[in-house]
Amino acid sequence: MNGGYQFDFSAVLARYPLFFEAALLTLEILAIATVASLVIGLFAGIGLTSERWYVRGPVRAYVDLFRLTPLLVQIVTIFFLLPIVGITVNALVSGIIALSLNYAAFYAEIFKAGITSIDRGQWEASRAMGMKDSTALRRVILPQAIRRMLPPVGNMLVSLTKDTSLVSVIGVAELMSVSQTLGASTFRNLESLLVVTVFYLAINIPLSALVSYLHKKQVVNA
């Protein structure tokens, strides 16, 4: 029994170039937000490990604000807030900013965990030879921490692919948005959704495979 519903993909598939365009935009959001959030997350993560409360405090406040409130709320709030504080950007940029700030908060925690998981002796050996803490962090601590962070960062990538769909609410023409538009205009909403599902899988299955590979590699090297 299928409730009498007749699947018909022809109208949706006839407009396939729109899906590819939208998929490219999704990939663009994914790439830019990943780079931005990793950079912000690195500095915020280092800030979280600071011994100075006036560094750690504000960073902690930022991280918790973005980690403990819904991403969807952040996307919409930032979209309306930016023009008010005098920043005029289009919906795409606004969406990327929201995704980046949100993911950076989680990356900050991952960086912090990675940094603090490194044995004290590594800091001591670096300091004992007269290295500045910033040099020790860059040459000794982070290279080791980042290796341990690869699997969680990979999981975040998979998760970000999915969360890019949320910027459809502010009208960014990424995959989810296009599927809704096409669905409405062809009256084939379900078919349209199933097609974008395939696109999300096409992005995330390789990413997820990469994560398992990194996981396995790490277990072997541990």
Binding site: S126, A128, M129, M131, V140
Partner: peptide
């Protein structure tokens, strides 16, 4: 001060992200 004073630790504390040569060259 620390450039004038070298230290050898009980647990070696070599840098695992570097080769043997890079460890010694790090300072």
């Amino acid at each position: 001060l620390r450039r004038e004073v070298g230290m050898v630790f009980q647990q070696f504390n070599l840098f695992p992200n570097m080769t043997v040569l890079e460890n010694v060259a790090a300072g």
